[in-house]
């Protein structure tokens, strides 16, 4: 019941984007992927989703590598939500969410599953509205509904909260938590260290394509690692028995 990546190496031309990265997420847990811009977070997420042909053999689900899986089977196993999804035609929200059923080949019970996914992110009422008329937050929730409609055991989301206001950021993270409680393995790329501490079971800190730290949130989010990787000073706080950090100032180099 684990999605495992072993020794992932990705190069774009001569530039190594990921070198020797190991990663694992089990069903039922939320793993946060953090790190500065250009650290390789999105690339790692793409590799986990099987979108880099060169790394297919290094990623496996329950012992079967993605290389041995059929492309539709892989898509049914790993749902992927990229950053800034653009919808190319003025499709309605319901049509976008329904595309989550594509990997299943369009069976009869699809409508209910799409509706259930839309209900969970509270966009069912927007079903007939064109995506272009929705707010950024509503659009993001429709895309999340699309990813949920896949009903995959693993869900990978690349900065799903980037465009959301604080209320909807919390809502989105709570939703990912609930999905994990229901048995989904969730990997989420985050820039917000507060949300990372609040909602993730494990954190993986990437820096220049390598893993700088990995472990429980309070282990990863200690001052030294953040100073070294992000080049910032943080304020450590505790509330309701939970530890979190606030980015405070850049370190002068």
């Amino acid at each position: 019941m684990t999605l495992v990546a072993a020794n992932i190496n990705v190069e774009f031309g001569l530039q190594a984007v990921l070198s020797g990265v190991d990663f694992a997420v089990s069903r039922g847990e939320v793993v946060g992927l953090i790190g500065p811009n250009g650290a390789g977070k999105s690339t790692l997420l793409q590799a986990l989703a099987g979108l880099h042909p060169a790394t297919l053999a290094s990623v496996s689900v329950d012992g079967n590598t993605l290389l041995t899986m059929r492309i539709r089977e892989r898509a049914r196993t790993i749902a992927f939500l990229r950053q800034n999804t653009r919808v190319h035609w003025p499709l309605a929200a319901g049509q976008v969410a329904a595309l989550g059923r594509y990997p299943h080949g369009g069976a009869g019970s699809d409508d209910e599953r799409v509706q259930s996914a839309m209900k969970r992110v509270e966009v069912l009422a927007l079903r007939d509205q064109p995506m272009s008329t929705l707010s950024a937050g509503e659009q993001m929730r429709v895309h999340i509904a699309r990813a949920l409609a896949v009903e995959a055991p693993y869900l990978l989301a690349d900065e799903p909260v980037a465009a959301l206001d604080p209320y909807h950021q919390l809502e989105c993270m709570e939703l990912l938590r609930r999905e994990a409680q229901a048995g989904t393995g969730v990997v989420v790329v985050l820039h917000d260290l507060l949300l990372a501490a609040r909602f993730c079971d494990w954190l993986v800190l990437l820096d220049h394509g390598r893993i700088a730290a990995t472990g429980l949130p309070h282990e990863v989010l200690h001052g030294d690692a953040l100073q070294a990787v992000y080049g910032i000073d943080v304020i450590r706080q505790r509330h309701d028995g939970q530890e979190f950090v606030l980015p405070w100032r850049r370190r002068t180099r």
Binding site: R82, T85, L91
Partner: peptide, 11 residues
């Protein structure tokens, strides 16, 4: 219509 990357992730 959701772009090539999302389409690829959908299989």
């Amino acid at each position: 219509s959701l772009g090539e990357e999302t389409a690829a992730s959908l299989g």
